[in-house]
Every structure is written in C-alpha cells, then in structure tokens.
Design a protein around this nucleic acid. Structure first.
Lengths: 296, 296
DNA sequence: AAAAATATGAAACATCTGTTGTAACAGCGT
DNA sequence: ACGCTGTTACAACAGATGTTTCATATTTTT
C-alpha cells in the first residue's frame, strides 16, 4: 500500500515553498509519526509552525492537517482502500441521510472485516485449520443461534463434497447427543461469538476431553473457546447498526470449506458428480434447458 | 506486534472488573486503534466511560491511559513491514503460492459483490423490500439447501426483534406445510440461486395464488422467481473457486433485517430487551462478569 | 441484613488541540 | 525607494482531550 499523498508530495515537491518542502520531507521520512503524533508535535519536529502544517494540507485539498493524519492512520491499519471508501461513503451520505446511509455504512464496514481475513496472519490460521480438518476422520459442526447459519453452510458444502460431516443439531433438542461418539481423530468445528453460548463451550470441553481436536471460530483471542482450541479463527462482528453481523464469519467458513475441498482435490470432484446425479434423480433442481416438468 | 502489556492484560484478565475486562478485550482485539485513536474515542468504541480507561491504565502502573497509547504507538513504529507497501509486497508474493492465493482471491472477489449491494439501484430495492416486509402481517422465510443459511439468519434476527416470522423448515419434510395458512397480508421471503430449487418455485407460485406478496432474493433478473416477485434482490454468487458463495446473499439479508428493525424502531428495542431477559433466564449465554454459575 | 469495599459514570477541570486572523518578513519588478 | 506578492510565525479562539472528583450503584464481607 502506498500513500497517494506521498506520491503527490514528491511530484509537487519542487513547486512547494521552502517551509512546505521541509514539512514534506519530514512527512516522507517519518510516515509513522504522521499517523501517531499531534499536528503541533509534528510541526515542532519538522521545525515549522503548526499553521504551516494546516496550510500545506489545505493546499492539497484537505480540510485540514487532521484529515492527513487520519489518512496515514488508515494506511497504517493496513486498509488500503479505506480512504476511497470513506470518501464515497461521505458523498452518498450527503445524498441521502436515511436508509441509504445505513446500507452504505453496513457494507462499508464489512469490507475491512473481509480484508482482515486475507491478511497474512489470518491466512495462516485458515490454512492451519484447513490442514487439521482435512486430516480428520469426521468433522462435527456446532454453532447455536445466530452462528447456526455459519455451521450449516459449512456442513452443507462439506456434504456436497462427500466428506464426513455431522451437523450438531436435531429436532427435540437432541442435538448434542451426536457428540457421544466423538473421539480421537475427529474434529469439532465450533462457532460462537459474543455473547458466547453456554452449550457451545460445554460441548467443546466435552469433545476435548474425549480426545477430539477443536477448530474454533470466534470473535476474540479472549473467547472462552480459545483455551481449548487447537486452531482458532478470529472474525469481526461489529457493524454501525446495533446488532452484530455474521457475514465475516460466514465468509471465513466458506473460504475454509474451499481450502479443504482443494486439499481433497480429485476426491472432491468425484463426490460432486455423485451429488449432482443424486439431486437430479430426485428432481431437486429446475433444469436449465427446456421446460421444467414439475412432478409431485 | 509484541506488546508486553497485552500479555499482562491476558494474564490478569480474570482478576479485572467487568468494565475493565471489556476494555482489555477491546484493546487486545484492536491493538492498532489503541495507538491511533483518542482515549475518549476508544472508550466510546469499547462501550465504557473514559474514566475507566484511565483507571485501567493506572492499575497497571501507568500514570494514565495516554502512556498506554504511547506504548502502543512505539510498538507500531517498530514494525514498518505493515507500512510503506512492504505489507502488500508480502501479500502479493505469497499470493502466488497456492492456499494464500485462493484465500486472497475469494475475499477479493467478495468485496466488489458487496459494493454492488450498496449501489443506488440495490439500495432502492433493499428499501422497497424492507417497506413491504415491515408492513406485512407475517413473514414466511423459505430457502432450501445452500440458501437455508441465509433465511435462517433472517428468521433468527427477526425473531429476536419480536416480529412475526415463520421459518419454512421442519423435521420429516413437513416444512412446506406451514405455508398452508399463508394469505393476503403475508409476505413470502424466498431465496434461491442457480441451480434453482424446484420446491422454492412451487412454494412461490402457491403463495402468490393465495394472495401473499413475494420478496425474492436470487442471482439474476432471469431467475424463475422473477415473474412472481413483488420485490426482487439480486445478489452475486461467483467466486474464483469452483463453488458458489452465499456470502453476498447473506450480507444482503442481514442488511435487509437491519432496515426492517430500524423501521420498527422503539418496538424493536422493547422486543430485544424481552429476548435478552428470556435468554438470560434460561442461562443460554455465558455471563460476562465473574463466576458464571452454569445451570442444567 | 447491614456495613464496608469496590466499581462505575456524569460532570468538572485544567490543559492541549487544530485552525484561523493578523502582522511581519523576504523576494522581486518597477 | 516603493509597492506588491506570497510565506511564515505568533497569538487567539473554540472545541476537544485526558484526568480527577464525587455521588451513585454494585459487589463482597461481616
């Protein structure tokens, strides 16, 4: 990620006044400090009056130097597109203050959450989890309440692939019963975010004791699942609205499923063909070509 | 970022008070923001009064929270890899190596799909669908196979909000039976993407005949659902992997739920309080404070 | 059940922030 | 020398910042 401003700064360097050049030089040499220090402190270090900082920023089209600092701060967080995104957001919010703003805000907040999942650290965790699951005899998928969506899609995709998957869910609250047979060689994929569900933690404890490995998808290093997890995936849930979003967790699980499928390679493809045959035999899907003759 | 404080924070976590734990958790989850945001802003995001921040810092031997921020700022300066473009170099170099490439590609492809959902046209459709659903007597939620995740989360959130919602799903393939009572004033939320499921289309036909309105979430204007839909939301499903992603549909539905919740305003909040009371009475969640006395 | 101890948020506080108005200054052509 | 232009620092301002105080919950102990 390169700061657009640094580039502009270098390009226009010649045309700047003496003091402004001093500031520009200092900024280019100390990008981290631009994000971390106050404008006044930066002026002091660059040997310039604070007013000069503000005016330089304004020359480049910012409202003040504060905006420059925010730009550098965002860059430091490792969110390359955030400035462009924010600008768009502002524009559109001016256009409409109501629903549109909420929609924009929700999706805008999701983007950095997804980007966080493709950071090197997250990738390492995803691949480690995929390795663990790919080697497992069976995978038990457990997620209650809002996270059920997440484990369901994992289980569904995994079933399509022909891999051994058990969805911990059952009519009449018999869900947890399927865990009875869990043991060494199995993996429990457990998903829970704040507020953490009691049953999920219990199940993880239980499975761990029986010798199963744990892959936890949760929202913090401090999650109660963390101490039990062999592999842990951290997903964001925050949104500008007052409720949490499961979209990042959902995306992470889909990605995990894809990684595992890739590991099984040829086997996956064979299973997919089988699945398709079965489903078309049952007339599950509408045929893409002619008229679909409905039956039943 | 190797911060001595994070370690101490985790070590003493149990001994901290409820509010301090909230702060510690937020700090561990957002280390970059500790360095970049003001104390007040951090307090706001952690859901705590500014005073708590200062006090927590003092408990750990600092003069005030400002010193903590400086500590984090120094730690951030110490790792220029994430800055000045070297991070992205690393990323793109790794992107040639199998797993990482797949992960990057998947999330990268999701971002434009989400952005498409906040385009003016999509916003209009979302708000129109929200309007229709907000006025409905009851909402029936129907999605089979991979799309079940999507309708499940909608149903779950809507139930939390105390709105009338019926999940079309049942043990023993009795799911469709609940549609018997559907009629004028009701809305059927139907989700299906290619390959379209036979049953979903059938159900939509049936509901339409009975006078219900249809909100369709699907992947194309040419979807078989389109002719029956009163409101239609189009979501992308394509990924660089060989299977489809439901993440955009998932995000769209969450957004739709948020819009509807906003429309119900005060009512939503009351229902949320009720839900919380009920859930805590049942001991569903792990209590955030000290000893959580498990029951059952 | 009462009392002591602790934790917490609202408001108050002095301090510091970023910006702007003003005046001094240097360079430059006339 | 003169006025004109563009820079710059200084001072002043409104607003925000981090900390402290104090009264009020909340928890723990007696």
């Amino acid at each position: 990620m390169n700061l657009g401003l640094s580039v502009k700064l270098k390009a226009d360097f010649e045309r700047l006044s003496a003091r402004s050049q001093a500031v520009a030089r200092w900024m280019i040499d100390h990008p981290a400090d631009v994000a971390l220090l106050t404008t006044r402190e930066q002026a002091r270090r660059a040997g310039v009056s604070p007013a000069t900082m503000t005016r330089l920023a304004q020359r480049f089209g910012f409202k003040g130097y504060d905006d420059v600092r925010k730009l550098y701060a965002d860059a430091m967080r490792g969110r390359p597109e955030s400035f462009r995104g924010r600008a768009q957001e502002l524009v559109s919010r001016r256009a409409d203050e109501g629903d549109a703003a909420l929609v924009q805000d929700i999706f805008a907040s999701l983007v950095p959450h997804l980007q966080a999942l493709s950071s090197p650290g997250a990738v390492k965790r995803l691949t480690a989890a995929a390795d663990l699951i790919a080697k497992a005899k069976r995978v038990f998928c457990l997620g209650l309440r809002s996270t059920f969506s997440v484990v369901y899609i994992f289980h569904y995709v995994r079933s399509l692939f022909g891999a051994a998957s058990v969805l911990v869910d059952g009519a009449g609250d018999t869900g947890i019963d399927v865990l009875r047979t869990i043991g060494r060689g199995d993996v429990l994929l457990a998903v829970t975010v704040r507020p953490y569900t009691q049953h999920t933690l219990k199940a993880v404890c239980y499975a761990k004791e029986k010798g199963a490995r744990i892959v936890a998808v949760t929202d913090s290093e401090l999650s109660p699942l963390a101490p039990f997890a062999d592999e842990i995936l951290i997903v964001d849930t925050e949104t500008p609205s007052f409720f949490h979003s499961m979209t990042p967790a959902f995306a992470a699980i889909e990605c995990l499923a894809a990684l595992i499928a890739a590991r099984r390679g040829r086997e996956t493809l064979k299973a997919l063909v089988q699945s398709e045959e079965q489903l078309s035999a049952f007339g599950t899907y509408i045929l893409p070509s002619k008229k679909s003759r409905a039956k039943t």
